[in-house]
Design a protein around this nucleic acid. Structure first.
Lengths: 244, 244
DNA sequence: AAAAAAATTAACCAATTGGTCAACATTTCG
DNA sequence: CGAAATGTTGACCAATTGGTTAATTTTTTT
């Protein structure tokens, strides 16, 4: 499930995370272990650390509660495992794109598109991560600190594009956080957005997220692109009105 | 504290919320009651409903635990009070702006500016609201449903601006959610953003939020404004500022 | 001042919760 | 096979938690 191999392009981060507590867990995870993790994932993500009950996890996994402690010594330990799994699934996957070697606009498009996909597949993970990160900084903070996440490469690229006159001047951090905001927030705020904008219809909401890919990309690029009469548009497939 | 009078421009929402459980509480709140609410606010917002302990709230308020139940029958009741107070403080305040009668760009600027101010003053409320809303939909959902929050007026205005050719064509909901995202997300994700972008420096983060006002406004408007090159989508559109 | 009402407390309680343990079952393996 | 290792369980425990109650203090009212 962790699918570590997927993300091995960003070895330092993964290594750091894995080393911390999984200690290169042998792949011989038993069926029971799997059931426990799946159940724990469900309950923890749904109820949060404090709201989760070991008994509920045991029931959900169809086993005795004592067995939980047999495989994972304590609630904290079990939680850490689940949290790291979720964290790895959602956070580093997109860093690969940001640190890749593409033209900026391509990169933004791919980032938005891929990230929205990842989040659509794990819609409740962001809220989980953000909440636990905010409320259990002692428990998790140390796991995350120094993960090697660093946006310097992408920031440098933005600066280069600014100097090249391809995009407007701006603080790259603002731009990055704008991108993250527009991708992540709709999932964190799903309940209230769904109520206010989509009549609580799951269908409409899904449709909305699907449309959002193109929309957010367009929104970002339109905002930062420097429109000049003598345009220096990069060799990207800018599918816009080329009716010049 | 609730400052209901501030927001009375959106009476329906406030009315609905207030009627639900405050039942027009008499203003004769005793000092103890205030202390309890303040303590409860702190603990609930910090720890969430499940993580909060009645004993801790009592200690924080400097009173006996039984006194909590004397004033607020149960944990749930106390929580509802605290939650509604927070909700009222952060959510409706900006709706006033969105439903006002200003030109679109002014409105956007005022919205972003004011909202970032409100959130900077209550930085932990958004996370609190979003989390409890997602995890205790049974407990709170009914309080929120039908609050009268509705963005129709603002949506209509956007459509008008599109037809008038002042802004590009777009789904107004996408635009609104973009705005909300960029305002709210930085506060929800503060811990991780601070670690990744600001070396955990509170000072740098504050500075960043301050700069963000102008930045987000600029970002949004630059993205939706229709630049005066040629652009014809609708056949019979009134010729606005076409410097051709 | 006396009685009534409101505020406050200590002690207590039933239920829940994370965790343990000794016993039992199953698999592994010499 | 048979013993050692591993997996699994029900019963149990100490600590915690939300909530109650009866008694005491403080304030208000008469």
């Amino acid at each position: 499930m962790v699918n570590i191999s997927d993300s091995f392009l960003i070895l330092p981060l993964i290594n750091h995370l894995v080393k911390i507590n999984i200690t290169m867990k042998k792949n011989k995870e038993t069926a029971t272990e799997q059931a426990i993790l799946e159940a724990a994932r469900k309950v923890f993500v749904e109820k949060g650390f404090d709201g989760a009950r070991m008994q509920e996890i045991a029931d959900e996994a169809g086993i005795n509660k004592a067995l939980l402690h047999y495989y994972y010594r304590s609630k904290e330990k079990l939680f850490e495992t689940v949290f790291l799994e979720a964290f790895i699934k959602v956070v580093p996957s997109v860093l690969v794109i940001l640190n890749s070697d593409e033209p900026l606009f391509n990169k933004i498009e791919r980032f938005v598109s891929n990230y929205l996909d990842v989040l659509a597949e794990n819609p409740i993970i962001p809220g989980f991560i953000l909440h636990e990160l905010a409320h259990n900084q002692k428990r998790i903070g140390s796991l995350i600190r120094g993960t090697g996440i660093n946006p310097q490469f992408f920031i440098a690229q933005i600066y280069r594009e600014i100097e090249a006159g391809n995009i407007k001047n701006c603080d790259p951090r603002q731009l990055i956080i704008n991108m993250l905001s527009m991708c992540i927030f709709p999932f964190v705020a799903k309940p209230i957005l769904q109520a206010v904008f989509f009549k609580n219809s799951e269908e409409e909401y899904k449709q909305f997220i699907a449309e959002r890919k193109a929309e957010v990309t367009r929104f970002i690029i339109a905002s930062i692109r420097k429109q000049q009469e003598e345009e220096i548009i990069l060799p990207g497939q800018s599918t816009q009105n080329t009716s010049k």
